[in-house]
Write a protein that binds this DNA or RNA. Structure first.
Length: 256
DNA sequence: AAGATCTTCAACCGCATTTAA
DNA sequence: ATTAAATGCGGTTGAAGATCT
């Protein structure tokens, strides 16, 4: 998985590093530190650009680099941090000692993106979620806004994915809603949910003493798929992906 | 066995931000 | 305050290895 080494028109070497180059770079940094990457190649006797030297040092030669497969704990941390930070790989890397931003980014792109798109299926075990009592649910008929609240009992680092298939439990929910509908989720950690709602997990951290997720649906019309909830309209189902990625818990949304 | 296709990850590139002059 | 240089970041690429046909 290496790029064939070559020398560009300016005499700068590109591509995979050789063992000798590694040795020169490591020896120079050990002796002089790495305060000026631009000039370092010249002083270290390397035909590389400073950027390349910096990258090689940070991603491979640094003595505190941790090698080997990511542990379950590291994977969980990456998922959680990515949820709150997005693609801020360098910041995420600061929370994973010995791991580089490049390594985490690669790991995410090759392993995690596949896991981050959970879909409900009828084969998943269905157990009732704990919903709040009806008195927390309200409707504003003038704005067609429905408000209900879901109370869950998360444990540390649990993550939640929410979807609301309307017509049947087999509906692949995210596509069942019209674009005129807006689903918002507010909780004490996230007041404005951006990005891809359907694939973004909620993180419950150790300090979450208020495991409530308030779900608002707003619609400008009586959208048959996502209009306001009416009394007796109990075929709205709330799907709650519970735990890491795959476990699914299902239950009815509160009836207004 | 061999060619095609997929997966992985080191390294590159362009751009944004920070630092130094 | 301004500008240029240096650094840092994140997206993308390309080639080796793995897997499939």
């Amino acid at each position: 998985m290496a790029r064939t080494p070559y020398t560009d028109k300016n005499g700068v070497t590109k591509g995979t590093w050789t063992a000798e180059e590694d040795m020169r770079l490591a020896a120079y940094v050990a002796a002089h530190g790495c305060r000026n990457w631009r000039r370092l190649p010249k002083y270290a006797g390397l035909a590389r650009c400073g950027k390349s030297c910096r990258l090689r040092w940070l991603n491979y030669l640094r003595p505190d680099i941790k090698r080997g497969n990511f542990t379950k704990e590291e994977e969980d941390a990456i998922v959680a941090l990515h949820e709150s930070l997005g693609n801020k790989w360098s910041i995420i890397a600061t929370h994973l000692p010995g791991r580089t931003d490049n390594e985490i980014k690669n790991y995410w792109n090759t392993h995690m993106t596949k896991k981050s798109q959970p879909k409900p299926t009828t084969t998943d075990p269905a157990q009732p979620i704990v919903c709040s009592s009806n008195d927390s649910t309200s409707i504003d008929n003038s704005t067609h806004e429905t408000h209900f609240e879901v109370v869950v009992s998360p444990s540390q680092n649990d993550q939640f994915y929410l979807s609301l298939p309307h017509t049947s439990p087999t509906t692949d929910s995210p596509n069942a809603f019209s674009s005129s509908s807006v689903l918002m989720v507010n909780d004490i950690y996230q007041s404005d949910f951006g990005g891809d709602f359907w694939s973004q997990p909620f993180l419950v951290d150790a300090d979450d003493d208020y495991p409530k997720r308030e779900i608002y649906s707003t619609s400008t019309t009586d959208d048959p798929y996502f209009g306001p909830l009416y009394e007796g309209d109990n075929d709205y189902m709330l799907w709650l992906h519970y735990g890491l990625h795959n476990e699914l818990v299902q239950g009815p949304a509160p009836v207004c």
